[in-house]
């Protein structure tokens, strides 16, 4: 991981928004975007610059489904299991993805192609069940449609 990538972006945020606790989330967002996850050095950098204890930074990271401290695969699949998606059988869809990729929710495939995560509401209730793969939205999923989506990514 190229450290300078996230550091430059964080410094930009700090310059723009100031070194305060309130700046934590925007900083985490740019790091996640630059690295695909939040590396430990970045947490140390934020602790020192924002004067926020590491545990509180970790608390924020683990609270938000879009942030993670684990290195991610090339494609991050986030499938929603909040109520509207769940009622529209998101668990069945999840089962198919797990079977297709050979990994369980929370895991990354050995070839680092896929990371699968179950996340709370994505705000896509009108298209339930829904998921995101990286920045792209997929809605009204069925067991057949996800098979096709995964197959397309695999080639």
């Amino acid at each position: 991981m190229n450290v300078s990538v996230w550091k430059t972006k964080v410094d930009e945020v700090l310059k723009r928004s100031g070194k305060s606790k309130e700046t934590l989330l925007p900083c985490l967002e740019v790091i996640q975007e630059a690295c695909g996850y939040i590396p430990q050095e970045a947490i140390t950098y934020l602790r020192e610059n924002l004067d926020v204890p590491s545990i509180d930074i970790y608390g924020v990271i683990t609270f938000y489904g879009m942030l993670t401290t684990k290195e991610q695969g090339k494609y991050v699949i986030r499938i929603c299991d909040s109520l509207p998606c769940y009622l529209n059988k998101s668990d069945g869809v999840l089962g198919v993805i797990e079977k297709e990729l050979g990994i369980e929710a929370g895991e990354t495939s050995a070839d680092r192609q896929f990371t699968l995560e179950v996340v709370p509401c994505l705000g896509l209730c009108d298209k339930a069940p829904a998921m995101m793969i990286n920045d792209k939205i997929y809605g009204n999923l069925t067991e057949q449609s996800v098979k096709k989506i995964i197959a397309e990514l695999n080639c």
Partner: peptide, 10 residues
């Protein structure tokens, strides 16, 4: 000292 805190959600 701030070594414990809430993590995860729900």
């Amino acid at each position: 000292v701030s070594v414990i805190g809430f993590v995860n959600r729900g």
